[in-house]
Nucleic acid binder design. Structure first.
Lengths: 216, 216
DNA sequence: ACCTGAACACCGTTCAAGT
DNA sequence: ACCTGAACACCGTTCAAGT
């Protein structure tokens, strides 16, 4: 029963706190999120947050949920390749928009219902494609690991500054010991975007899965 | 010119500090590594460490180097599939032995020469397999993202405790909304090991890459 | 009953004082 | 010149006191 007119201090809820935390994390990175700073940004005392979340870990779970739930609905109708592709590229867009998500998920496995919808959708597509339950699970772990791994580790992604550092590190290598990297670095000048690279790998994976289906 | 006989306080070096940090991190996780605790374990004052490393970040780079340099030499001779497989499974063994590595690499891109040997080796195999430089780079990003992503994110890996938590979370889902996950969870009772799962995915990726080569 | 300041046990790093 | 304790500006969370 929130009182209206109290604009400045609209009643807090778990959702409102999580949304503020997500915004903070998007703006300043995971390290920028502390219970103190979050409480400040909401105009409450630090310990007030513990009325909504038992611990920072629990808050981070809610941040993942908040980030995940603004996803577009999965497209239906097309063949399994298109649907799996759309699902994975949709997840990728989310990870790119909220870069702290991968960092949170490395530190703590996320098992919130909202986040598991992604697994459910992926498994369904693979089952409908013709994989049995066991192999669908294996195949899902493959595409999941790839998508999240690319977002988390793909070099020369992220900020311009990081890309420059990577290029400098490679230029500093002795070319006779690192011939391929040294040569590739020149090549990389023609800026290989993350999108092109992630889609190349995804198509190879889909090819590999498709040939498994044909072999049945 | 280290004095002999001073066993208890053998002269510190960057390598010795990094080795102690790796041991600490293996034993207690990345959160267990603080400059204070590391200094204590070495019997020196905290600030002494800053004589060897300019910052904790720099120390973590050295930890990655220390963990990476105990890798087995890459096998030569066989066909490209076997060599790439051996390289990736070798990297995986390293990531499993030192679970903090992925966490470090998510927080800070690693560009140490020792760590880049892995990229160099991977690119070489792909080039020899017949990919041009541009596509070899794309293919390497695929296998790299998958290997590291699997180590970092593959659910139900890690500790027994985590696996139990995952199983419980899935059992708690409403089966009518999550039919595939609910059914798969029963299946998962026949404990799907990380090794089997990682190799399944790797073979699909290798299949996908091989069919690209054949299409040329 | 709800909210929260003070306090505790930690951090990484700067700075200045010790030898 | 080298080493390092004290201090600063932070953490997450407990506990007890405020309303």
């Amino acid at each position: 029963m929130a009182r209206e007119g109290q604009v400045a201090t609209a009643a807090l809820t778990r959702e409102r706190v999580a949304a503020a935390a997500l915004e903070l994390v998007d703006r300043e990175g995971l390290d920028g999120l502390s219970m103190r700073r979050l409480a400040d940004s909401l105009g409450v005392g630090t310990m007030t947050l513990y009325g909504y979340f038992g611990s920072k870990r629990e808050l981070l779970d809610a941040v993942v949920d908040a980030a995940v739930s603004d996803r577009a609905p999965e497209p239906a109708g097309d063949d399994w390749r298109s649907r799996l592709r759309a699902l994975l590229l949709g997840a990728r867009r989310n990870l790119v928009r909220h870069p702290a998500l991968v960092e949170i998920r490395v530190r703590q496995p996320v098992l919130q219902p909202e986040a598991l919808r992604f697994s459910e959708a992926g498994l369904r597509v693979l089952r409908e494609a013709g994989f049995d339950r066991r192999e669908a699970t294996l195949a899902f772990r493959l595409v999941f690991s790839y998508s999240f791994g690319f977002a988390a580790f793909s070099p020369a992604e992220a900020v311009e500054e990081d890309r420059a550092a990577a290029a400098a590190a490679i230029r500093a290598l002795p070319p006779e010991e690192y011939p391929e990297l040294s040569a590739a670095s020149a090549e990389a000048a023609e800026a290989m975007g993350g999108e092109e690279a992630v889609e190349y790998g995804l198509e190879r994976i889909l090819d590999g899965l498709e040939s498994r289906l044909r072999a049945r």
